[in-house]
């Protein structure tokens, strides 16, 4: 699998990451190398195998609909990079 500039930009945008010229080169090379390496799995015939979607040994782990103590308002906002007394603040979403 070859990762070119276009694909790198697409993936980076989905992951909300950005790269400059040199780090982009490095990332493309690393990704190409690793993805080519993992393509080894294509050697295996998996036609009649179900994908394994959970490693849990439990099913129907549910809880009752009961309110438990919350996080206090102060603690909720405590680690916020930007906030006021009530809200978290982020740069405005441009539509």
């Amino acid at each position: 699998m070859n990762i070119d500039k276009d694909l790198l930009n697409k993936i980076a945008h989905l992951a909300r990451l950005e790269f400059d010229e040199s780090t982009a080169e490095e990332m493309m090379a690393d990704m190409t190398k690793i993805l080519t390496w993992v393509e080894k799995l294509n050697e295996l015939d998996t036609d009649n195998v179900e994908p394994l979607t959970t490693m849990s040994h439990e099913v129907n782990v549910l809880r009752e609909d009961e309110v438990k103590p919350h996080l206090s308002h102060e603690r909720a906002l405590k680690n916020a990079p930007k906030k006021d007394s009530d809200y978290f603040r982020v740069p405005k979403v441009l539509e």
Partner: peptide, 11 residues
């Protein structure tokens, strides 16, 4: 990639 790997995981 992903589905394939999930299958191999089961194997």
């Amino acid at each position: 990639y992903y589905t394939k790997a999930q299958k191999v995981r089961r194997m």
